[in-house]
């Protein structure tokens, strides 16, 4: 297997993505390959195929602590969209899980930061991650009458 070692370069010279993005793109975390039988507490779908990005996020919520226990996803999109989704799912579930309020206010900049930056023109690709998460949290809240 050939791995190219080139540094992140925002001007498009060399590989335009950071090592973290490449890692998450080549090895996406928390993918839900098949949702049949997966009992999600909340689901969020954002984007459109015409725009080139569609993301679905599924979450399971710990009813006692109101924290996200699991966050799964699938994305149609470019490498940065996939890496952003993957990173979002990691952030939502790390350290005992993100509380719902934080999840609702997660900003794309926070995801991009954790990815080690995105080339400027790719920034918009990271927008889906936090939106899908927010939709999923809202879906959970609606379903539970909150």
């Amino acid at each position: 297997m050939k791995q190219q070692k080139k540094s992140c370069s925002p001007d498009g010279a060399g590989w335009i993505y950071s090592e973290t993005i490449k890692d998450h793109f080549f090895h996406p975390r928390n993918i839900l390959l098949d949702e049949t039988g997966y009992k999600a507490d909340g689901v969020g779908t954002v984007g459109s195929p015409e725009c080139g990005d569609v993301m679905i996020a599924w979450i399971k919520v710990d009813k006692k602590t109101e924290r996200i226990k699991e966050c799964k996803w699938r994305t149609f999109g470019c490498a940065s969209a996939i890496a952003s989704a993957s990173m979002m799912s990691v952030m939502a579930t790390e350290k005992g899980g993100m509380d719902l309020k934080t999840a609702q206010t997660l900003k794309p900049q926070q995801i991009v930061e954790r990815l080690g930056g995105l080339p400027d023109r790719k920034f918009h690709c990271s927008v889906l991650g936090h939106e899908a998460l927010r939709e999923a949290v809202e879906d959970y809240l609606n379903k539970n009458g909150k």
Binding site: I31, V54, I56, T75, F76
Partner: peptide, 8 residues
């Protein structure tokens, strides 16, 4: 692989 993680 891409179809596996694709939402459409």
């Amino acid at each position: 692989k891409i179809r596996g993680i694709s939402s459409i």
